[in-house]
Every structure is written in structure tokens, then in C-alpha cells.
Amino acid sequence: MDGLGATMAGAAQAAWPLRIAQGALRLLRRLVDLTLILLLGIMILAVLAQVAGRYVFNFSIGEATELATFAQIWMVLLGAGYAMRERLHVSIETLVEMLPPLLARLLMLPVAALCLWFLWVVFDGGLQLLEIGAIQTSAALQISMEIPYVALPVSAAYLALEAALAFGGILLGLKPITTGGGVRVD
């Protein structure tokens, strides 16, 4: 019995980093969800202000247009990570569905590698773009262009995390390879 207790204590010690990582992932996902909701609200209000300014007061509000544009950029780029988490990206699964499960999982290796390489290129390019943004200001809002440009490395990193989790689950056999022909069943 003493050996069993030691084994259970060892397993509990090994499990705490996993629990911390899972909690951090839940917190990050919740933060992304709330940010997406906030960005949608900002975009809606900015567009409504622009429409009201243009059609009620016969005056164009350039700041509202620019704010809506920046909110949309952030929303689309962060939303790509959300879509990866929910498996909402378009995929062609015909070949994968015809292969035996092991071979289909092996096929996911180069797919995952290409996706993560592309996201690295976007991340690195985003960092380079930040250097340019540091010396530029936006036309209407007069804010540093680092604010919209930082969306590239931030969203690429988040999308890479979600892609690594999705592909990792598939490669380890913890998640199904296909999503059921594009039909959500959950």
C-alpha cells in the first residue's frame, strides 16, 4: 500500500504542470473570446457613428472609419485562431477519409509543418512590420501604426498555438482526423 501511495503522490506532482497549462489555456481562450466580442462591439459602434455622421449630419467621420478598419483587422486575425480551435477552417478531406487512420495521421505531419512554417513567416514578418509602424502614425486617429500592426505577430502566435493543439490531438489520436464532411455535429 505504501508503494501505491508513493506512486499516486508522484502522479499528482507530475500532473500539476499540466493543470497549470490547461488553466492558462482556458484563460487565454476566454481572453480571446472577450476581445473578439469587444472588437465586434467597437466595430459596430464605429460604423454606426460613420453612417449617422454621413447621412444625418452630412459629415464624414474619418476616425470612425479608421477605428472600424483597425477593429476588423484585429477581429479577423484573432478570429482565425478561434476558427482553428473550433475546426471551422475550410479543408478538403476526401483523400484523408480514403486513407487508413495511421496513414491519414502521418499525412497530417507535413500539413502541420507547412501550417506552422507559414505562421512563423507571418509572425516574423509582423515583427519586421512593427519596426516600420514605430515611425508611422495613422491618418485619422493619429495613433502609432504599431497598434494595428501588432495584430500580425500576436494572432500568428495564437493561431500557431491552436494549430499545434489541433494537429497534436490528431497526430496523437486524441481527436478525429476529419470533421464529418463540413457538418458540425456538436
Score class of each variant (00 low, 15 high):
58 N>Q: 07
61 I>M: 13
98 M>I: 07
109 L>V: 15
149 Y>L: 15
4 L>H: 09
185 V>H: 13
87 R>T: 05
86 E>G: 00
185 V>A: 08
90 V>H: 05
149 Y>Q: 10
135 I>T: 14
148 P>T: 09
25 L>V: 10
172 L>W: 12
173 G>A: 09
119 L>T: 06
106 L>S: 05
89 H>F: 13
56 V>W: 14
58 N>T: 08
103 L>C: 04
74 W>T: 04
164 A>S: 15
172 L>H: 05
116 L>I: 12
140 A>P: 03
138 S>H: 05
4 L>S: 10
54 R>E: 01
123 F>N: 06
175 K>D: 12
138 S>D: 04
128 Q>I: 02
153 P>I: 08
134 A>T: 02
20 I>N: 01
38 L>I: 01
133 G>F: 02
92 I>E: 10
102 L>T: 12
167 F>S: 11
104 A>W: 06
151 A>R: 10
87 R>W: 06
22 Q>V: 07
61 I>K: 02
129 L>A: 15
87 R>G: 00
50 Q>N: 11
141 L>G: 10
20 I>F: 13
114 L>R: 00
149 Y>S: 14
103 L>Q: 10
139 A>P: 00
138 S>R: 06
18 L>H: 09
98 M>P: 00
89 H>S: 04
84 M>W: 01
153 P>N: 11
38 L>M: 11
27 L>A: 15
74 W>S: 07
124 D>E: 13
173 G>Y: 07
66 E>C: 09
181 G>D: 02
11 A>Y: 09
151 A>T: 14
183 V>Q: 09
180 G>S: 10
74 W>I: 05
65 T>R: 08
30 R>H: 12
149 Y>D: 05
98 M>E: 13
150 V>A: 15
81 G>T: 12
112 A>T: 04
108 M>K: 08
170 I>R: 04
162 E>I: 06
49 A>V: 08
147 I>T: 05
117 W>M: 04
170 I>P: 00
2 D>H: 12
36 L>H: 01
31 L>I: 10
28 L>H: 00
20 I>V: 15
1 M>P: 14
176 P>N: 03
119 L>S: 08
93 E>L: 08
67 L>A: 14
71 A>Y: 03
151 A>P: 07
82 Y>G: 00
171 L>S: 09
75 M>L: 15
7 T>W: 06
115 C>T: 15
78 L>G: 05
131 E>R: 12
24 A>S: 14
140 A>L: 03
60 S>D: 07
73 I>F: 07
32 V>T: 13
45 L>A: 14
87 R>L: 03
174 L>V: 06
135 I>G: 07
86 E>L: 08
36 L>S: 02
184 R>N: 14
33 D>C: 04
152 L>V: 06
102 L>N: 05
150 V>Q: 11
67 L>M: 14
165 L>N: 11
56 V>N: 01
17 P>N: 11
182 G>N: 03
114 L>Q: 05
35 T>W: 03
156 A>T: 03
152 L>Y: 09
24 A>G: 12
7 T>I: 01
96 V>A: 11
183 V>M: 10
120 W>R: 05
41 G>T: 02
167 F>R: 07
118 F>L: 15
29 R>L: 01
54 R>Y: 06
69 T>S: 15
14 A>W: 13
121 V>I: 12
28 L>A: 15
113 A>T: 12
167 F>W: 11
162 E>T: 09
117 W>R: 01
152 L>F: 15
144 S>M: 03
96 V>F: 08
92 I>F: 13
83 A>G: 08
114 L>E: 04
146 E>V: 15
16 W>T: 14
